[in-house]
Design a protein around this nucleic acid. Structure first.
Length: 484
RNA sequence: GGCCCGCUGGUCAAACGGCUAAGACACCACCCCUUCACGGUGGAGACACGGGUUCGAUUCCCGUGCGGGUCACCA
């Protein structure tokens, strides 16, 4: 039988990386077996509707490369794929259960339930579970608002199997008579979820392990209808590290206070969608080999449910950063340049510099957003600290710098402005003076750039700046040194 | 609090009763060197604790501890 999984987010306007990872594992579970991946929007909560939220879901899946085979936007044989468009479908199913004695009308008011809660009761007291037929008809005739509740066993225990966690057993007295249809006629998530999964032919339910203890309720529903229970795959949670008021480091469920945990936030910070996917694939799952960098296709091939871990994992930006640099390093020149272009444009860099820029930037950045900061010295040249000319390892100091710059500026003015010529000029000068290359390179680079750290070495800095700007800056620097 | 789940270095994790307990990120040192990176070599660092079962437990069982999840007319 063909495997069918589904991603069923509710449109809240924010795609958390935890949700994305669930979507990824759902995608991988089906695609590894050549199955179908379905997108269903769960919008039964009218109060939580957020404008434009579904677009965020589409955009995220598209950017991440998790293409769905069926969904509201692409159609399919099991539509509609938005719960609010399926509303008429649910109530008859609930009525069917009422008729069969497996569900019942509950006329309790919210106030009564709240009071119950305040008195310390846990769950519903099943007040309406055994109303007489007369009472029910009476209430119905009077138009008393009602919900439909599922009738769950009071004693014994329920066991089911999960592919990750094994057999799970829950005492039945822990299970509440959950609401299937709300007073407004809408189905609850729990009910709609089961009806939809079944009617859409979902074979594998992949979801976070927060559902581990409520799954018996879902199973009771499948049983009540006489439907096959799907295969369950519950996923460990993703945690985040943060600092509490006392300055202590605490680990808790990943949320907004842990920084950018929304997929779009991460993308805006310069993480590549494929790097994010790669990284979160590794949070809670390990391949059978030591490979760590994967394309989506490689993930599909390598994915194996046996590799899913049971323990929660901590989201680590440092490792994500590393994955990102690996993706950047693996890029072709064209790929790198097209990603970098928006940042080049901001700095007014012309196309003739692109090859050199790629050469010096590609091994040095971990995110494209760092380009501006790395190249800022090209735009800004201020009163930097002349202490920068002092560098022990290069055997450079202010005196040697003055000597080198005095000799080298006139030579630079008369040379061709290309990497080979400049390098040759500087090394030949060093050789003739019997000093280390670094004694020459250091002051020239510092004098031109005005910052200690630059991507690329001395000649690259000069090329990027251009002849005129370089000479001007070197002259300025020399003047400042001699004045001291 | 009841119930459920988890616990290998700072982090992600391998091992599915049998070694001196892989690997990756981060960290440190050294090398390379025209700064910083890249790259290369090496280093430090872990089976939560206590009982069992067993010839032998990180691995199986039971407690304890710690962490997490869940107990809605939310999804």
């Amino acid at each position: 039988m063909k495997i069918r999984t589904r991603f069923a987010p509710s449109p809240t306007g924010f795609m958390h990386v935890g949700n994305l990872r669930t979507a990824l594992y759902e995608y991988l579970t089906s695609k590894h077996e050549g199955g179908d991946f379905v997108l269903r929007i769960e919008d039964t909560d009218q109060e939580r509707y957020v404008e434009g939220a579904t677009d965020i879901i589409y955009n995220t899946l598209k950017l991440a490369g998790l293409e769905h085979d069926e969904g509201p936007d692409v159609g399919g044989d099991y539509g509609p794929y938005v719960q609010s468009e399926r509303l008429s479908l649910y109530k008859p199913y609930a009525e069917q259960l009422v008729k069969a004695g497996k569900a019942y009308y509950c006329f309790c008011t919210k106030e009564r339930l709240e009071k119950l809660h305040e008195e310390g009761a846990i769950g519903y007291d099943r007040h309406c579970r055994d109303l007489s037929e007369n009472e029910i008809n009476d209430n119905l005739a009077k138009g008393v608002p009602y919900v439909i509740r599922q009738k769950l066993p009071l004693t014994g225990e329920s066991t089911y199997h999960d592919l990750v966690y094994g057999d799970i057993t829950i005492p039945n007295d822990e299970l509440d008579d959950q609401i299937l249809i709300k007073a407004d006629g809408f189905p609850t998530y729990n009910f709609a979820n089961v009806i939809d999964d079944h009617t859409m032919g979902i074979t594998h339910v992949v979801r976070g392990c927060e559902y581990l203890s409520s799954t018996p309720k879902y199973n009771a529903l499948y049983d009540a209808f006489g439907w096959d229970i799907p295969t369950y795959i519950h996923l460990p949670l993703i945690m985040g590290k943060s600092v509490d008021e006392e300055g202590k480091e605490v680990i808790s469920k990943l949320s907004k206070r842990h920084g950018s945990t929304g997929f779009m936030d991460l993308v805006n910070e310069g993480y590549l969608p494929q790097a994010i996917i790669n990284y979160i694939a590794l949070l809670g799952w390990a391949p059978s080999t030591n490979q760590e960098i994967f394309t989506l296709d490689e993930l599909i091939k390598a994915f194996d449910i046996n590799g899913i871990s049971k323990s929660p994992s901590v989201f680590d930006y440092t490792k994500l950063e590393w994955v990102n640099t690996e993706f950047i390093k693996a890029m072709s020149y064209e790929e790198f340049t097209s990603n970098a272009k928006p940042f080049y444009d901001k700095l007014g860099l012309t196309e003739d510099k692109y090859p050199l820029l790629a050469e010096i930037l590609q091994p040095r950045i971990s995110r494209f957003t760092q380009i501006e900061e790395k190249l800022l010295f090209l735009k800004e040249f201020g009163e930097f600290d002349t202490q920068l000319f002092e560098h022990k390892k290069s055997k450079s100091n202010k005196e040697t710098s003055i000597a080198v710059l005095t000799d080298i500026i006139p030579s630079l003015e008369n040379t061709d402005w290309n990497s080979e010529a400049i390098s040759a000029l500087l090394t030949e000068y060093a050789t003739s003076k019997e000093i280390k290359n670094s004694v020459v390179m250091w002051p020239v680079r510092i004098g031109a750039a005005g910052v200690a750290v630059t991507p690329g070495g001395c000649s690259e800095v000069l090329i990027l700046l251009g002849k005129e700007e370089s000479i001007n800056r070197l002259k300025t620097s020399l003047l400042r040194l001699t004045k001291e």
